[in-house]
Design a protein around this nucleic acid. Structure first.
Lengths: 342, 342
DNA sequence: GCAGTCAACCAAATCGTTTTAAATTTCCGC
DNA sequence: GCGGAAATTTAAAACGATTTGGTTGACTGC
């Protein structure tokens, strides 16, 4: 059923019908009601592509999903979906090209110029991110989940990784730990750098020399958490505490610690960053995991909100949100074992 | 840059340019090449919404994401994205309404009739699924990930849950287990029913009476895995083996077993279903987890492929793929403890 | 040199809406 | 019951591509 036919059946012009459905003021209450009712009865629904063409709005927000299938993704999207429910705005997930960054940039360019989305969200930015530069140059609306250090102005929403990790590390130092290993995220991403900084600053504040052999960067998987933790534990003297980048990493670390016959929370302390997943909670691990916590889902919801504001005309420079991160202490952290105290 | 302007700069008509870019035969190789090159140079890209309007194709596949933010989701989507890369087809994730099923059906109806997607994928179907009935009635292309028992013909891709769980259960029985508990998925979903059937059939084949107190249905989270396993372990006599619905559930079960001072693989055997996540592997658990395995990512990729076939005109009735599931035995399964043998 | 064929290109119609600009109707005071 | 403002409604022009149905010119065989 098309507008023309629908209007004819109502004995009205397409114009009036269109206006009635879009809630414009210059149509009488009586007809509006009639139109709305008949639309439901006859099952008329505007062809979205015609609407998009004529309005120039796509009614969708683009998200590029990495190949790696990160587990954060579903939670973040779910948060977005929550906020977007009822807004008649969809989420468009774009199949990413491989990690070849030239291709990734061209993917963003295609997304921006083809008119299939009104805005995009950039994840895991780098300090000097080409995607951000490109989108800015194109004048295309975008929100960065995370932050970049580029001069290019950009709207962003980030959690305070630096402070979170500084506090986590400080806390471990307070407990007497001196050799603290960190399994951080992928190299070159801003969030990893911020965490590095928090970690190093905490050490420095307390006069502990930074040892590059205690810091690695990689994907967040239990496998890698295990491998790195094993390797760290083979050092002499071995670290007495770990800062793990994610819940999955923490699972691997726990495993590695146990595999050496050591006890988490007693021989080895562990703090991880927890994105708050409904299916895997820090509270429930054994021993329960001390964690820096910030909800991915909330970030997704707020991101959607901010994108909406951006599309509503709010200036990108104005949108800069840094979320504090809670540090929740549980059983996985304890005083450094006596023999390791300096 | 619009087609008209772009064509003018090339000294060609819009028709020829459009044809050149779409690879139609009635344009000379020479001009085609020139058009292609200039398009890149001048950055011309067809407005997707105009294309959609005129061709009637949306160039997108719809997926409805549940509120629960399931961890399978990212892997499945990632698989889809992998297959769709280069096809110029997007994935549209629709913010789901809440679990109120009337709303969910109307969401599918909106998706189908508004022209924003060419096909949709239905997840976690029920035996008599309203969404399937609706989509069939509308004559809208869709693929079911899972299966339904409805009379309505539908294209589907499913894994052989029944056989997988039957074999897993049988194996446990072979090892001497008699009291085998199962923590299954959400009530009323076809996959849960199939698993129930596999479980009950295996018991029956070996003359073991089904005990409803050993079977529960719920979401797949470590928390619930823990809680149910704890409750099961309090029964007397307690079960000596568990069939867990997911990796997360298995984590909870491991925890529960340990919390009772028991040892997985010795006192208590565990088999779980593993969807193959890059960030959490059965192989790496301690003890390594015996599992029925089938890759979510592969299912996503194949789903995208099948949807493409569906859109290419292949009959829905023809598309019915049942994937076998591997049973991989590792250390979490062992002979039932002697005192528990019947 | 001419009709016929074919390759290459083009003008204009079309997709289904929204929106601009104009036309109609209604309402009001006098 | 008339002029004019206000309230409704409408016809027609976008939006930016694809596609239908030609047209043009070069080449062929005779």
């Amino acid at each position: 059923m098309k507008l023309k036919e629908f209007a004819r059946q109502l004995g009205l012009s397409p114009t009036t019908v269109s206006r009635a459905l879009s809630g414009y003021p210059e149509v009488s209450e009586k007809t509006r009601k009639r139109v709305a009712e008949e639309a439901v009865r006859l099952g008329y629904r505007p062809n979205i592509n015609a609407v998009r063409l004529v309005t120039g709005r796509a009614g969708a927000i683009g998200v590029v999903m990495g190949r790696t299938g990160e587990f954060h993704f579903a939670e973040y999207m779910s948060g977005m979906a929550e906020r977007l429910d009822g807004e008649d705005i969809d989420i468009l997930v774009s199949p990413t090209a491989d990690r070849d960054s030239t291709d990734e940039v061209s993917l963003y360019s295609r997304l921006a110029t083809s008119g299939r989305v009104d805005a995009v969200i950039v994840h895991s930015p780098k300090p000097n991110d080409e995607r951000i530069a490109l989108l800015h140059e194109l004048g295309f609306p975008f929100l960065v989940h995370g932050r970049s250090e580029t001069d290019v102005p950009h709207a962003w929403l980030d959690i305070d990784n630096e402070t979170a990790i500084r506090r986590a590390t400080s806390h471990l130092i307070d407990l007497g730990h001196r050799r603290i290993a960190m399994i951080n995220g992928r190299h070159g991403r801003t969030f990893s750098l911020h965490r590095d900084k928090g970690y190093r600053d905490a050490l420095q504040e307390r006069g502990i020399a930074f040892d590059p052999r205690l810091l690695v960067h990689d994907h967040f998987t239990d496998e890698l958490g295990f491998r790195y933790a094993r390797a760290f534990l083979e050092q002499a003297p071995r670290p007495t505490a770990f800062v793990a980048g994610s819940m999955m990493t923490a699972l691997g670390v726990y495993r590695a610690v146990r595999s050496r016959g050591l006890v988490v929370g007693k021989d080895i302390s562990v703090i991880a960053h927890d994105d708050v997943f409904p299916y895997l909670t820090a509270e429930n691990m054994v021993p329960s995991l001390s964690a820096t916590r910030s909800s991915m889902r909330a970030a997704g919801a707020r991101s959607a909100d901010l994108v909406l504001q951006l599309l509503g005309g709010r200036a990108a420079e104005e949108i800069q949100e840094l979320w504090p991160v809670e540090l929740i202490l549980r059983e996985s952290t304890g005083p450094a074992p006596a023999e390791a105290q300096s």
